[in-house]
């Protein structure tokens, strides 16, 4: 995957979570994904806490994209 497509995917995924286009993802936005994704509310809570590196309760695109990069790195190793 090229750098541009990673950036594109990051934006796409961010927008899938930030459906109101606020520019950040709140804990409530994350819980809404419960309907569309095969993850439990607890798992989504866990994902949110993992991505929210500064712990302020909001996920910015920066935090989201570093989580996505970490995921991609893990994929490469395994």
């Amino acid at each position: 995957m090229g750098q541009n497509s990673i950036l594109e995917k990051t934006h796409e995924f961010f927008q899938m979570c930030d459906i109101e286009n606020k520019g950040f993802i709140s804990r409530r936005d994350m819980q809404r994904l419960n309907d569309g994704l095969p993850l439990s509310a607890e798992e989504l809570e866990n994902v949110f806490d993992t991505l929210d590196s500064d712990g302020n309760g909001f996920l910015t695109l920066d935090e989201f994209s570093s989580g996505f990069s970490e995921f991609l790195c893990g994929q490469k190793i395994s």
Partner: peptide, 29 residues
């Protein structure tokens, strides 16, 4: 370091999350 351990445990959840987003995007079941 307890934070490192927690991070490792959460890696699987994170992978699960992004994989689900990928499947949702591509329309795979």
């Amino acid at each position: 370091d307890p934070n490192m351990k927690a991070g490792a445990a959460n890696e699987g959840v994170l992978a699960n999350f992004f994989n689900s987003l990928l499947s949702k995007k591509t329309g795979a079941p």
